[in-house]
Simulated assay, not measured.
Amino acid sequence: MTLLVVTAVEAEAEAVRAGLPSGHAQVAAVGVGAASAAAGTARLLALAEAAARPFQAVILAGIAGGFAHRAPLGATVLATRSIAADLGADSPDGFIPLDELGFGTAIAEADPTLLGRLRDALPDAITGDVLTLNTVTGTAETAQALRRRFPAAVAEGMEGYGAARAAIDAGLPFAELRTISNAIGPRDRAAWRIPDALAALTRAARSLTA
């Protein structure tokens, strides 16, 4: 399988490359946020197609925040769905998701075959929904609201849904793989464990050779 692995930033890309044999997959940082992830992933897919070397699958990999008691620090997470949690409309009665507005869907399902392969290779990984947010959570109130709205969510990032849309629109299997660097809730940088999460990402990347 010719695999494209996209990350938000170069530090994540380097962590993934450190776990992969040379030449096994193309790994690229495409930028922070869903818009950058969608545009960067789509560009790489189009260039590969034009060069007659198309990719056969896409994985978004990176570090993320984990919901307390669902995905602890250092855990590896596999998304069953990548959900654009803030894509919709505000209203006096609360947030209205894109799906309820009738303008498309904010949910990107992971490819079941690709997800199954990753689950087999990473039997200790936590599976569940991974939220994509333009503004990551920084308060206990927002964390609690997200837990209520998305009871199957285990983590949040900023790129999954964007990369997923690029892959799915190109007709390619997609999956999202995250390692947990911090707990979702009040912003406390002193409690973040980014080096540990990057090291976990390197270990998880070895599964991409399976």
Rank of each mutant, 00 (worst) to 15 (best):
T80F: 08
G40L: 09
P151L: 08
T41L: 02
I59K: 03
A75R: 07
T76M: 12
I59Q: 02
A25G: 04
A28Q: 13
A163E: 05
L114G: 00
I180G: 08
G185L: 13
A79I: 07
A110N: 08
Q56S: 15
V27Q: 04
L87Q: 03
T135D: 14
L60G: 15
A110H: 06
V27P: 03
G74C: 00
D90C: 05
A85H: 01
M1E: 11
I126A: 04
I126C: 01
R81M: 03
P195N: 10
L118A: 06
G33T: 04
S207D: 13
D124M: 09
R53G: 10
A200D: 07
D111G: 06
I184D: 11
L114F: 00
P186Y: 04
A50H: 14
V58F: 09
L98R: 10
P72S: 09
A34D: 08
T139I: 00
A200Y: 05
L45G: 07
A145N: 14
R178K: 11
A15P: 12
A152P: 12
H24K: 15
A163Q: 06
L122W: 11
P92Y: 00
L198D: 08
G65P: 14
A145Y: 03
P54A: 05
F150L: 09
T7R: 04
G185N: 07
G157N: 10
L78G: 12
A42P: 04
P123I: 10
M1H: 10
R203N: 14
F103S: 00
R203H: 13
P173G: 07
A197L: 10
A15Q: 11
G160C: 08
V77T: 10
A166Q: 05
G66E: 07
D196E: 12
V77M: 10
G162V: 09
A191Y: 09
R17C: 09
L3H: 09
A121T: 13
T142K: 14
L47P: 14
A204H: 11
A143E: 10
